[in-house]
Structure formats: structure tokens, C-alpha cells
Design a protein around this nucleic acid. Sequence first.
DNA 1: ACACTCGTCTACCATTCGGTAGAGAGACCT
DNA 2: AGGTCTCTCTACCGAATGGTAGACGAGTGT
Lengths: 201, 201
Amino acid sequence: MRSAQLTGTRDRILAVATDLFGSRGVDAVSLDMIASDVGVAKQTLLYWFASKDELVQAVLAGVAEQLTVAIGAAVRAAPNDPLERIDAVVRAVFRAAVRRPALLGLVREISRLPTHVADRFVADVMVLVERAIAYLETEMDAGRLRRADPRLVASLCYATITGIATEPEALRAVGWTPSISGLRRLRAELLDFIRAALAPH
Amino acid sequence: MRSAQLTGTRDRILAVATDLFGSRGVDAVSLDMIASDVGVAKQTLLYWFASKDELVQAVLAGVAEQLTVAIGAAVRAAPNDPLERIDAVVRAVFRAAVRRPALLGLVREISRLPTHVADRFVADVMVLVERAIAYLETEMDAGRLRRADPRLVASLCYATITGIATEPEALRAVGWTPSISGLRRLRAELLDFIRAALAPH
DNA sequence: ACACTCGTCTACCATTCGGTAGAGAGACCT
DNA sequence: AGGTCTCTCTACCGAATGGTAGACGAGTGT
């Protein structure tokens, strides 16, 4: 054995692969790049993951779990008001995205992946989406949210959040530079936008 | 000369490249694929465009022009009410995206491109963005739009529109199937969402 | 002491990629 | 007719990619 790592080789590979796949895209990242970043030979990657596809699937599984846990905790901790809950979820997703910037970038990668690679991930996330849709619907029925098609509202919120979090170019184009305070302002503006879009009347 | 084509080889290459780059991503599309789709040899591509980078730039230039023309015409034809104008722009972008589905997918590709390839396109689009921001600001000052940071509002609208138009996976995940009537409903819902987010109070 | 498993390595392979070299076929000019 | 320009082709190249084959060393159980 080479040495007693604090984290196992497999976990380090997953961490590096998540960052690289998310920030540059799956196609643009080679196994050699990941291996060299981790500090092992490419063959070591292929020992832990039989193929690149399998590595991508493992990375996606990790992302799905992180999102599920983060969102679940946020919902449980939030008061029962729908706007407050949406607020809490957006904050949770933002927090996750700040801690690991490539996370939402990876979510956006799925539309480019062959279906047999993305299927499992789509199924995992579908659970979250269905739950959100059901919740939106009951709140609309109760008049606490603006009446609309809950499925499309969920898509719109998703598109807005991941869009804003994964398009640094778009933000640079409007003269935005990343910083802690800038990020907080961005989040506040995003929350206002979504609140205004969903509030009744 | 091989034959009298209705459109020149160069234009056909551009059309095919736009569709492929936009739908599958620049990295994932090889010159061989484009050439075989057009029905010429790869070398013919490299005769018209000195390199893949140059082809990508030419494709982006075409996209920027189409968007500029479509949006410009929509704005000129719309009444002076800000919500009406935003409405008109969204409809124009949607129309362009329906006619050529890969168009907005390409816009999203720029964040992955080397800067020297994307720079020109970013500059072209920045003109549109600056104009939109200035307009939003004056309308906010006049109290006809909800008060907010116009730069970030522009980014949010951009993220929402391109997000919804380029993530078929996300829409499939909420049980949406593409159709003419479905698309119209989607557009209507998107317009309601943005109107509600931007209307004063 | 010996066989076995686990984790990592070096060496290599087939394929694909973007790009070069150069030939050839028509159109046009003189 | 001959020369030149435009456009397309076949043939090839070096680099990079995902993946295979197999050796090596350190633990571990018997």
C-alpha cells in the first residue's frame, strides 16, 4: 500500500471528477486529466471505475444524493409557508453550489449524456421534482401561490436557478464580478424575482 | 463545378454546423460528422473555414445576427409599454428557437469555449444586453416595472428563457412532451411568470 | 513459507481527432 | 490552346483518447 490517505483513492477520484466534469463538461475532460489531478495513473481510475461512463454515473449519483439531502433538510427546517419554503430551498441549493461550484454545472450536463448514463440520475431527481410539484399544487389550491401549471412553474424555477448559477459568462456580460457580497446580492435578487413571480395576485 | 446547388456549400456547412453544435455541443461534434451530414469531404470544410475554431466563430456570428435582427424587429413593432415590449422580445426569441432549435443551445455553449473564440460573440450580444438594461432602468425609474437591479434582472430573464428553451431533459422530467400546442402553453406560462416577476407591486 | 488478493503501476493498442499536402476537374480569361 | 483560378477530392500525419494486458509489491490467511 502506498500510504495511509486521509480519504480513499476512490473518493478523491470522485471529488476531482465532479469538479472537472461540472466546470468543463464531461466530453472535454479526459481520464488522463482526472488521473493527473488526483495524482495517480489512469489505470488506477479504471481499476475503481470500469469505464468513463461508469465514473460519470458514480459522480451523478453523488450529486443526486447531495441535492436530495440538502433540499430535504432545508424543507424540514422551514416554516410551512410556501414562499418561506421556496426561499429555504433556493438558499440550500445556493449554499451547495457555493461549496462546490461544479455541482449545478453537472446537472446541466445531463442533457448531453447518452440516456443509459443519465437515466439513473434523472430518476433520482424526478423524485424531488414530483414532490415539489405536488406541494406547489396544494399551495396553489389553497390560494397561497399564484395559480399556474405547477409542472411548468417547477421547470421555470429550476431553469432560473441553475441558469443563473451556471452561466458565469452571462453574468460577466452584464458586468457582474463574483465576490461574497456580490453573491449574496445575487441570491437576494433571485429570491425577490421568484417570490414576485409566485406570490398570489 | 459539381452542380448548381440552391445554396452554396459554405452556407450549407454553416447551417449543419449550427444545428449540430447547438444540439450536441461543440466538443462532441467532429468535423467529419459535419462533413458527412453536408455531403462533402472534411477537407472541403477546411477549405471554407481554416480551422474548427474559425467555423465555430462563423456560426456564432450568424447566431448573433439572427438574434439581433429578430429582437430589433420585435422591439420596433411593439407598443411602448415595458411589459408589452418584454412580451414581444420573448415571443421573438421563442419564434427563432422554434425555427432553429439549436440556436439557444449554442448561446449556452459559449461558457465552455476558449475566450478567443467566444469574445467576438460576447461583444455582439453585449450590445443587446446593454440596450435592454438601459431600457429596464428607465422603466423602473418611471415606476412601470418593479424596482430591482436591472443588470441582474436582465440576467435572470436570460437564464429563465434560455434555460427553459434548452433543457428538454428538464421538461421531460416534469412530464412535458413537445408539441405545437404544448409549446404555446409553455410560452404563455413563461410570459406570465416573467410578467408577474416584473410588474410593479 | 506459500499462495492469494488488493491496489497501483508501466507499456501498449485501436480509434478518432484536427489539420496538411497535393492532385484533379471544371470555369474563365487571353 | 494554354494558363490560371476556384472548388473539391484522396491520402496521410501526429497527438490525444478510452481501454487492455500484465507485472510488481505489500498485506493476509493457512
